[in-house]
Amino acid sequence: MTVVNNVFSIFQILVVVVVIFLSARLVTRGNNVLLTVFFTFAFVSLLLSDLYWLTFDTLRYGMRMPIAANEIGEWAFFLLLATGLSSLKKEKAGASVPEMLYVILFTAVNTALWIIWSGEWLQDIMTGFAVGVLAVSIVRTAPKEGIPERPAGPVIAAVSTLVIAFQALSTYIGNPLTRVLEYVSYALMYLVLIYFVYMTVRRYRENKNPAAFTFSLIAFVWNVFTMYMSPGVVYFVSLITLTLILPLLYLTFRREVMKNDLC
């Protein structure tokens, strides 16, 4: 399992290095310096986090890790990306109060589940805070036009509530039915992920970029929630999908920062 994990980490490192190289080139070319620099910084954090994990696994395999420093890199990634997104606020954007409240509540419940599963209070609260800040930033900066898809919004909210409920049930009640519900929750998570990726590609092709960028960010954050909720093989699948979403995130980001560029 460790070898497989390391192979996936190396794959992710390669993808992240390419994204850093490409996004760093946009710093002097794009029209949103803050977003470009913080997007690059965020990916540097992700790279350092991956490298830390790989190094620890190679040098100190099986040894105690009192503080998971690689998670600090993940916090940096979420927070720096959220900070970069603050530059998009000036555009026609905004979210309703119920949407914001739902995102905060969803993150809080997820954080509670992570604490129950791992017992790491401080680290899970910090991770929850960082992911929550990014999720709220995405909702705040999401353009009204094209996002959210009004009929799909409540459906996604309902599905994500079901996912949480099924996960909580399978945590506390250990019988065959809750086991089935747990697998149903994974299926639901991936269905929602597929929907977000599909919408990203569709909006990207239609050249509706603020929407495409927002959908790619939502797909990314949803993938993070999926990954943190998944054990074993399902976790590795999430890790692969997360790595595959990163180039998509870069492509939509590139179009966002170059949209008024006439050259």
Binding site: A42, A69, A76, L79
Partner: peptide, 20 residues
């Protein structure tokens, strides 16, 4: 854009670099 999340994000970046 000076914000708590931005400062903590930058701090975390320097922490992970130092930790590595």
């Amino acid at each position: 854009a000076l914000s708590f999340s931005g400062i903590v994000g930058a701090l975390s970046l320097s922490m992970i670099f130092h930790a590595l």
